[in-house]
Design a protein around this nucleic acid. Structure first.
Lengths: 156, 156
DNA sequence: ACCGTTCATTTGACTCGTTCAAGATTGCAC
DNA sequence: GTGCAATCTTGAACGAGTCAAATGAACGGT
């Protein structure tokens, strides 16, 4: 938990200064994949209560920019972040509860797919999101918001 | 432009009342694919200046709920809508200018892909977004915002 | 053709995630 | 150790989208 030499190396490797907020954000994401900005902030503040709102946004942007973390934002969800990068994996998202799970890419290198007609675009990545219901939501069909009632849009 | 029997039928087919705002929104989307809510509002107001902000949001939500239009929202972009539904096509998105183009799904029926390991999820759709540079942005490498400068996030 | 119920729309305020700006701190090369 | 630039704190602002109450319009039944 307090051992962070790898995280420190990761930052230095990206030519970034090693600061408490940055180490804390990386640590939080390592423990808690697909966390929202708010969740990251909460996790970070457990150990460093003085870290600001803004610092987390800033750190996440910088880390995303340098490729140390990856940002994902499925339909209707706020931005989420993960430290698992470089392996071009994809995501399973539950339409009902918003749960997110990783799926290994069967191909490996990006772009794992190529469009049937690229329309002049030079494609470097194919992002895939599998939509469905997680095991729990499929087993307990209490309410299935988006399937028949147009008004519902379960967020959070 | 003023001929809207098909649009009217589409609404009735979904058990929805036929109203001016709804016809106008459908018409606007038919002419202008991948429009944002704001663009739809502007297009609608060309012919019906009194249509409200809220009506457009409402209409788009209802139409999305009934499956008459599809909502897409790529990273960093606001929600966009299209009337092309049911053919499970995918999208090409330009990292630089945000341009969006359609790509036919090479498979056809959803889900056109199945995850290597579904982790207990019941998947009904695979959404694919191809990221890259459109012809224009690739030809004119003036600035490539998201590639090296984390601060930029070109919207609008 | 009219009427009444019910669904849609207008109006205006508000929420929430995110960003902007200015000044204080702190990491790190020298 | 010192100094500069990157980073963080504080506090305010922005914009897409939503909520709620009241007015208005569509349409099935008469």
């Amino acid at each position: 938990m307090t051992q962070t030499p790898e995280l420190e190396q990761a930052l230095r490797g990206a030519a970034l200064r090693v600061t408490r907020p940055r180490l804390a954000v990386l640590g939080a994401l390592r423990e808690h994949a697909h966390a929202t900005t708010d969740e990251v902030l909460r996790l970070v503040r457990r150990q460093h209560p003085e870290v600001s709102h803004q610092a987390v946004y800033d750190v996440l942007r910088v880390l995303t920019g340098t490729g140390l973390v990856r940002r994902i934002e499925p339909q209707g969800s706020v931005a989420r972040y993960e430290v698992r990068v470089g392996d071009n994996h994809h995501h399973l998202v539950c339409r009902s509860c918003g749960a997110i799970a990783d799926v290994d890419c069967s191909v490996g290198a990006a772009p794992c797919l190529t469009p049937s007609d690229n329309r002049g675009f030079v494609v470097d990545e194919a992002e895939v999101i599998y939509w469905g219901l997680c095991r729990a939501c499929h087993a307990a069909p209490t309410v299935l918001p988006t399937l028949d009632s147009p008004a519902e849009r379960g967020t959070r």
